[in-house]
Amino acid sequence: MEIKKFKVGNYHAEVTAILGDSGVKFEAKPAVVICPGGSYMYVSKREAEPIAYDFLAQGYQVFILRYSTIGTMIEQEGRTAERDEMYRIASMVEPDKILGSEFPNPLIELALTMAHIRENIHEYNVDSDRIGVIGFSAGGHLAASLGVHWNQNWLQELTGKESRWVRPNFQVLGYPILDYDLNRVIANERGVGDPKFMSMAGRMVFGAEITDDTLDLATIKNHVSDQTPPAFIWHTGEDKLVYVKNALDFADALERKGVPWELHTFHKGDHGLSTASKITGKVNPHVQKWVPLMFEWLDELQ
């Protein structure tokens, strides 16, 4: 196994490549870019390496994107911060300060990561037609954003890359937040929303002011087309942070455009389960089944 790192974008995003066999003498492998969650405030460790290990075991080359957040900024300054401290720091951010987590910057970083992999397929021993994305929670929003926007002229202009270089061949989304406004409305209707947290999370994603155009672009179901890559989606009904309707609406949008999709909803299980195995500290034997189901789907897809 070989580990390499490289920077992407203009802020503090870093990619960790975890490779099996590499070099031109080996058969090219499929690859996946992992986008962990963390409310665009930090990058969850539970949704990074534990996911990477499963893909490595199946013969994939793996790239973990630690996109720009307050958390990655703190780490690059040589400091560490627990989640509660990051919440405290986030609540004190000046309105005009640019964090790098604001949409569409993480999307630019993900697109540049995809382009870098395709531009260096021989170094990484990757099959350029079998590169996908997997994301969880906010990382699911990031992965799905590339899925619907990869062929847009505005993204090409922002990245300086032709669309064909950044297209994901598949997308895997775990408990993704795909419609921020919908999620807010549901939370308010059920009386479970934390206004302070929701305001702070919105600041991480949209900056101090949310414009209608940006909110529309960040609402994934609005931009599904017949060019959106096939999707594997899973969610839990008991998730009280990101509601399952995010996944249901997205599957419906994919169906209406004729895009292949597979959706698994598990009744029990809270938010942030990752692989739901011992390595994550959140064990749920039933939900664990999403992992082999996903690999079966990927085998049939490719």
Score class of each variant (00 low, 15 high):
K268T: 07
V33G: 02
D252W: 02
A201I: 09
V172Y: 04
I74H: 02
V33H: 04
V133Q: 09
F206G: 06
I18R: 06
T219P: 09
A208D: 14
E119I: 08
V24Y: 08
R46G: 13
R167K: 15
D127F: 02
G71M: 02
E255L: 07
K196Y: 14
H264V: 04
Q76E: 13
G59K: 09
A187D: 05
V126F: 04
E102S: 07
W234V: 03
N125F: 06
N169W: 01
I131G: 02
T228K: 03
K5N: 14
S137C: 09
L178V: 09
Q288T: 10
T159R: 01
A231Q: 06
I70V: 14
N169M: 09
P229N: 04
D213V: 15
L112W: 00
P36C: 12
Y180W: 13
V126K: 01
P95H: 08
K221V: 11
R256H: 09
L298V: 03
S163R: 15
L65E: 03
N105E: 11
L241H: 05
G193N: 10
L182Q: 08
P36W: 10
A144Q: 07
V205D: 00
A31F: 01
G78R: 12
N125K: 12
R88Q: 13
W261K: 06
Q227V: 10
F6I: 05
Y175K: 06
H267F: 12
Y67S: 06
F26D: 15
S274R: 11
S128Q: 15
G9A: 06
R88L: 11
A276C: 14
R66F: 09
L107Q: 07
Y124H: 06
V185N: 03
D21N: 15
G160W: 07
D299R: 11
R203Q: 10
E102V: 10
W234F: 12
V148R: 05
K4S: 07
F170V: 06
T80F: 11
Q227M: 12
Q76G: 05
K161G: 02
K221P: 02
Q302M: 13
W154V: 04
G191S: 12
V8F: 03
F26I: 11
E77P: 00
F266Y: 14
F55H: 06
S137A: 13
V62D: 03
N151E: 11
Q156A: 13
P229I: 02
I18L: 13
A253D: 00
F250Y: 11
Q302V: 12
V126C: 10
D84E: 13
G71N: 03
F266R: 00
P176G: 08
P95A: 11
